[in-house]
Amino acid sequence: MNWDLGISGLGRRVISGVGRLGRATLFLVRLAPALGMAAGRVRLIIQQIYMTGVLTLVIVLVSGAFVGMILALQGYNTLVRYDAQSSLGLLVALSLTRELGPVLTALLFAGRAGSALTAEIGLMKATEQLDGMEMMAVDPLPRVVAPRFWAGWIAVPLLAMIFSAVGIIGAYVVAVGDLGLDGGVFWSQMQSGVSVSNDIIGGLLKSIVFGFVVSWIAVFEGYDAKPTSEGVSRATTRTVVSSSLAILALDFIMTAFMLRGL
């Protein structure tokens, strides 16, 4: 009796999940022409980059610095056992540019800006602002949704680059200032081991994909939210949960492809 219910519950969840994915895809198809239209309205996009990107900058700077410093400490502890502490710079740079920079930035962005995007659009829907726009003959997709989508998509790669750079500087400060490594070795090992085309461009590519997906999920959840305060708060939670899962899953897939591709 009970397991039976459990199975139907699972089935229901899977069906509704697939349904959501389908709706999100349809939404993206509808959004595509609006993205083109909004691309000309630079001012709106700039405003939204300010709201999303610049406001996430502080948390990205702080997190990046700390992650870099932690990597330096932990990496040093392991490397020193094999007398390979000269590779610390390389270890930190590869971890940050390939993985931690893009992934952590996207996660932070989803939590800070993605949820805010969803809540904002959801509230605009709940308070009839979107309906009002429709009645004023203004299509909310290019006016409201598309600039936010662009902004998120543009901001995430920039933030990821900043995260990695700040992380490496943080690691340098710890490695040279605290652990007593030679600064020249730190940089030269890094330079001999980090490839621009694979590691840095690869990381940039990841963050571009993450930016797209997080922005997509955020605006979709907001636009799709039930127009009540409860509906908006649920949508906000869903944005953070689905974005995080999507980021990690995509990261796995892309990493697998990139490592094979070498």
Binding site: L123, M124, T127, E128, Q129, D131, G132, M133, M135, M136, A137, V138, R143
Partner: peptide, 25 residues
């Protein structure tokens, strides 16, 4: 159309709200 909830755009001030349809159209 005048909505019951007014449906003013919350991120714009009164002036910009009234200017909104003019700027858009």
């Amino acid at each position: 159309m005048l909505f019951q909830s007014s449906a003013l755009l919350t991120d714009l001030d009164v002036f910009e709200n009234v200017a909104f349809p003019m700027r858009e159209h």
